[in-house]
Nucleic acid binder design. Structure first.
Lengths: 210, 210, 210, 210
DNA sequence: GATGAATGAGTTTTCATTCAT
DNA sequence: AATGAATGAAAACTCATTCAT
C-alpha cells in the first residue's frame, strides 16, 4: 500500500532523517487514505511505521507540519510526473489532453496519494484557526496553471470563447471526481476513462468548425 | 444561518419530537458547514440549538444516525426543488440544462447544506468501521438518475455516443466543485456559472450536426 | 488534609456544581501542597477526589481556570478570617499586630492553603504565555493594603519615617517565610513566632521615644 | 545573560569536562531564570548551549544532579563574594549590615542566579520522591550561619534578647523577597533598599539604650 | 422529554532518558 | 566525547455516550 514518496527534503537534513520523514509521510498517506483523516491519529501512523509515537513528534513540529509535508510531497511527485509530458506538447489541445491523461495516470499509480489529499482537503478546510489551509494554498496554483493553459488556447484560436475559470474548475473537479470513483471501484479502467474525458473536454473547448 | 430543513420523520414520531429532530439537524448542518466536520462536536451542535448535549443522544441513536438524517433531509429538500423543474422539460438536453440550473440554484439558496454534505462525504467516506457510508448509499442513486437521463438522450438521438458513467460523474463533479468555489468566494455569480456549464455540457453531449 | 474551602461560586451555578467545584479545589490544594505544583496533575487531583479526569475538565475550562479558582478561594477565606480582627483595632501598631497574628493563625489552621499558594506562585511566575500571573494579580493588592496601613501609621505619627514599600515587602516576606518553615517542621509554635514578629516589627516601625 | 559560574568540579575531572559542565550549568541557570523551572527542559538548555541533548545526560547523571550542581555553584559563588566582607567586620551589628549589603549586591550583580535558585527552591521543595531536596540541604546551613551571627551579637551584648531562629528566618526571607521584587521591577534601587533593611534590622535587633 | 453530570477512551504533545554510532 | 535518533510514560484536553433525576 506504500506510495513511496520521498520528498528529498532540503539539504540541511541528514540522510537518515530524510528517510524517516519520508517513511512517516508514506505511512500517514496510507493511514489517511484508508481510515479517513479523523481516524489517522499519530498513534495509528506510528503503528504502521513500526515506531513509537514520539518519533513523529521528534521529526515534525506537530501534526500540522506533517500534513503540510504530505501535501508538499504529493504535489512534488505529481508535478514530476506531469511536467515533462505537458512540455512535450505544442498545441493547447494537446496539452489539455496530456494534462488529463497524466493526471489519471498518476491517480492510477498513486491512488492513496489522491485519496489522502482529498480527505485532508475536506477535513481541514476552514478550521477555526487557519483562514487558508495548506491544502488550498497548494492547489490554487494548480488550477491557475490550468487556467493559463486554457487562455493560451483561446489566444491561439484553438479554443472557443468560454470562462477559463469555470472550465478550469470543471476539468479539475472532473479529475478529482475520478478519485472518488476509484475508491469505490478499484478496477476502474482509467485509460478508457481518460479517453472519454479527453473527448468530452475537447468538444467543450474547441472552436466550432466554420 | 439556519437552513430550515425539516425531514418530517416517519409517521410514528410525535410532533414535538419531529420538531426537535429538525432543529438539531438544522444546527448540525450549520455547525458542520461553518466549522468543518471534525470540529462539529455534539457539544457545539447542542450549544447552537440552545439545548443540552444529552438531548441529541436522546433523539438520535448516535452521531452516525444524526449524520444519516442530515443527508436524508438535504436530499429530500434538494429533490423537492429539482424534480418539478426537471419534469417540465421534454428534451434530454432541456432536462440536462434544468438539472444543472436547479442544482446551482439550490447551491445558491442553501450553501450551508451543500458545504455540510460535502464535508460529511469526504470525512465519513470509508471510515474504518463502516463499509458503505450513508453518504454513498444516498448519493449513488443521484448519479444513477443522471445516468438514466443521459442514456435517454442517447436513445432519443439527441446525445452522441459517450460513456454515460463518465459523463454523469463529470457533471456531478462539476456541480460539486462549484460548492468549494462558493465557499472561497461567496459572491460568485451562479447564474453566469450555470450558463457556462450548460453550454459546456451541451457541446460535450450533443450529436455533431451532419 | 482537606482544607474545606468552599468558594461559594457566583449565583448562576447549581448547588451540585458548586459542591463539585469546591471538592475539586480542595483536592487540588492538597495535591499541590503535598506533591508540588508540577506533580499535581489533573489525574492525581481526580484520583484524590475519587472521580474521573474528565470531571475536572467538565467543571473547569482548563488547568489555568482551576488554579485561578484556587487562588480566589484561598484569598476569600483568608480575607474572611483577617478582616474582622483588623477592623477591631484602632491604632496603626495594633492593626499591624493584628495583621501578623491573623496571618499566622490562618497559616496554622490552613497550612496546605499556604503551601499550595506559594508553590503556585513559584511555578507559574512568568511562564511564557502569561505576562502577569493570577498569583501576582491576586497578591499585589495584599501588599498594597499593607503599605496603606504603614502610611497611615506614619501620618498618625505612630511610625517613624521609612520606605513603606520596603517595610511592607519585608513583613509580607517574613510571613511567607513562616510557611516554608512550617513545611519543614509542622510542630512550630506559631503563637510564640507571632509574638517575636510583632515585637520585631514594632521596634522596626515605631517612632523613637524623644 | 550568562552568569559565568564555574563550579570547578572536584579534581578527578578533566579540564574539558569541567568546562562543559560549567557551560551547561550557566545555560541552565539562564533558562530557569528566564522561563521558569517547569519550562527549562533539557532540550531548551541544550539549545542555549548549542549542544545536543545527549551531552547533558552524558555529563550529569540526571536532571537532579544538574540541579544540585547549579545550587552548589551559586552557593559557592555567593560565599566567595560575601565571606571576605563579613570577615572585615568586627561588631555583630557591622556583620549583620555586611550580610544584608553583600546579599543585595550579589542579587544586583547576579539576578539570574537568584531567580533560578528561588524557582528551583519552590519547584523542588518536597517533591514526591525526595524527602529532603538538595535545595534545603544547601540552604539550611546558610540560615544556621546567620543564626550563629545573631547569637554572637546577643552574647556580646550588642543585640537584645530575641529568638535567633525567628530573626534569622525573617532576615533571610526579607532578602529573598527582594529577588521577587527585582524580577517585577529590574530598575529597583538596591543600594537604597539595602539601607532601609539595614536600619530596619538594626532597630529590630539592637539593645535598647538604657 | 429533558437535563446536568459523569465517564473513559482517545487525541496531540512534551520530556527525561537511553543508546548505537 | 558527542551526537542524533528513538523511546515511552505522562501531561492536558476533547468528545460521544450513558444515566439518574
Amino acid at each position: 500500500m506504500r506510495s513511496e514518496i520521498h520528498p528529498s527534503g532540503q539539504g540541511d537534513r541528514s540522510f537518515v532523517e530524510n528517510a524517516r520523514r519520508a517513511q512517516i509521510i508514506d505511512c500517514a498517506i496510507d493511514a489517511i487514505a484508508e481510515l479517513g483523516y479523523a481516524n489517522a491519529s499519530l498513534a495509528e501512523i506510528a503503528r504502521r511505521a513500526g515506531i513509537s509515537k514520539g518519533v513523529i513528534s521528534y521529526h515534525f513540529a506537530g501534526k500540522r507540519e506533517l500534513i503540510g509535508e504530505i501535501i508538499g510531497a504529493i504535489l512534488k511527485k505529481a508535478t514530476a510526473v506531469m511536467l515533462p509530458r505537458m512540455k512535450a506538447e505544442r498545441s493547447a489541445a494537446g496539452m489539455l489532453r496530456a494534462y488529463i491523461e497524466t493526471n489519471l495516470d498518476f491517480l492510477g499509480a498513486n491512488p492513496n496519494c489522491i485519496h489522502a489529499i482529498m480527505k485532508i482537503g475536506a477535513a481541514t478546510r476552514d478550521e477555526a484557526d487557519q483562514p487558508k489551509t495548506d491544502y488550498e494554498l497548494a492547489f490554487q496554483p494548480a488550477v491557475r496553471d490550468l487556467e493559463k493553459l486554457l487562455r493560451f488556447g483561446q489566444q491561439q484560436g484553438e479554443f472557443r470563447d468560454f470562462s477559463t475559470r469555470v472550465m478550469a474548475a470543471t476539468i479539475r473537479s472532473a479529475i478529482d471526481g475520478v478519485a472518488f470513483q476509484l475508491e469505490a471501484n478499484s478496477k476502474l479502467d482509467l485509460k478508457a476513462y481518460a479517453n472519454e474525458l479527453v473527448i468530452l473536454f475537447d468538444l467543450a473547448t474547441r472552436k466550432a468548425a466554420k
